[in-house]
Nucleic acid binder design. Sequence first.
DNA 1: AGATTTCATTTGTCAGACATTTAAAACTCT
DNA 2: AGAGTTTTAAATGTCTGACAAATGAAATCT
Lengths: 244, 244
Amino acid sequence: MKTTLDSDRDLSAQIASAIRDAIVSGQLIVDERLPSEAELADTFAVSRPTVREALKRLAAQSLIRTQRGASGGAFVNRLSYDETVGQQITTATLLLSMNEVDFETACEARFALEKACAPASARRRSADHLAAMRAEIHRQSQPGLSDEGFCASDVAFHRALVEGAGNPVLGWHLAGAIEGMQPLMNMITFSARDRARIVGLHDAIANALEARDAQGVQTGLDALEHETLRLAGQVRAARAARRR
Amino acid sequence: MKTTLDSDRDLSAQIASAIRDAIVSGQLIVDERLPSEAELADTFAVSRPTVREALKRLAAQSLIRTQRGASGGAFVNRLSYDETVGQQITTATLLLSMNEVDFETACEARFALEKACAPASARRRSADHLAAMRAEIHRQSQPGLSDEGFCASDVAFHRALVEGAGNPVLGWHLAGAIEGMQPLMNMITFSARDRARIVGLHDAIANALEARDAQGVQTGLDALEHETLRLAGQVRAARAARRR
DNA sequence: AGATTTCATTTGTCAGACATTTAAAACTCT
DNA sequence: AGAGTTTTAAATGTCTGACAAATGAAATCT
């Protein structure tokens, strides 16, 4: 873990890097206790506040957790999917919103990744996953549902599809792809006819999944991608017209 | 950005959350300057070190950057793909290594996602991407190459395939999936015959990509996945035999 | 006017102190 | 001796105050 400090870069950043490397390379294993802040300050020859800033950087990435009191300290954290998926979504969301990614690019990525789940989900989806999807379809058919509610249900539907693949790694990657798109999706206002069309496609996908028909699921997702792009195009056209 | 502080959770964590929410929700826009540390300490009624710890948490996620000097301060950072892909890889790597994900699960996810890139890559790959892949194939054929070198070249090959899709969002998601697998791949020792087989499959994939044959690329990736699983099975069998 | 110096602002770092939490050790009473 | 209580020590969380270093802007000088 020891490295020479450059003194030109931020000390806390360098110390965080050194400890992070030790964790990634396996020199520090899960649940192992790091030296106390005072000891770290000694070994790196810096003050305790500087060490603390470094530790907070690591805590922000969920790499460590801290515990107060005797026999407390900083411990290497076992990264969990649930813990990291939030950061994943935050990052994905900001990447899309800050970099002016055109809707087509984001949409292509999102559906391409989701289609990648189709074969595994068709093979392994349980009755529960199917029921969850049917429930969301039912919610989406309610006339009084708000646009945000419709989008949230849409996300839940697709999350259920992905969960059906029974692969936590796949689920983790997809969470960012699907939820990160939500702000972009929220810019769309869905007419009753649009909603009916989408619900119909969701139904077709659920049916294909029930029949364990991977190809059918992918076809449904293709149609859904096409429909989404069409709606986005309408929004853009309306906006251009208003500007004129 | 103002919120009531609970005083039971870490103050710096709460302050970081408040600022993070302000960024995600768009109240703070890219390149906007945050109040100085002293001002933040005032508004949140905490000391400057506490504010600094909060800011370091945000810096660890690349949400802000800081600059010293007059008219310096903390600025909302425009998240770039290059900046965040490193964190993405670190997280993905640790998730796999810390959670004892079985090789099959990780492998399935990785190849499923990569297959998702095949259609776009077949359509849009440039001559440069193809040349990069050919170059890596050539490197992989060198007899003197070390196992790590072989793995690194393998990663570069697949990265080129993904980049060929010309979709930065897709590329960002795939980077974690592919590079995160590297530690698991490094546990495999490749015999000369194994390498020849893999290089042959790489060649087939490159040929399919040259012919813009998406189905051929997917078939090649399927075969590569099968081959990878076979090699991993050998390693596991050898390990079980040694333990006996 | 242009170059130089000074200055104010802001982050980076340090030292020392106190508060709070927590588990283990010491102690007391039955 | 054993169970419950109190004390204590170690660790993080927070605060105060200070100085160093960087940096842009204002003031000054040629």
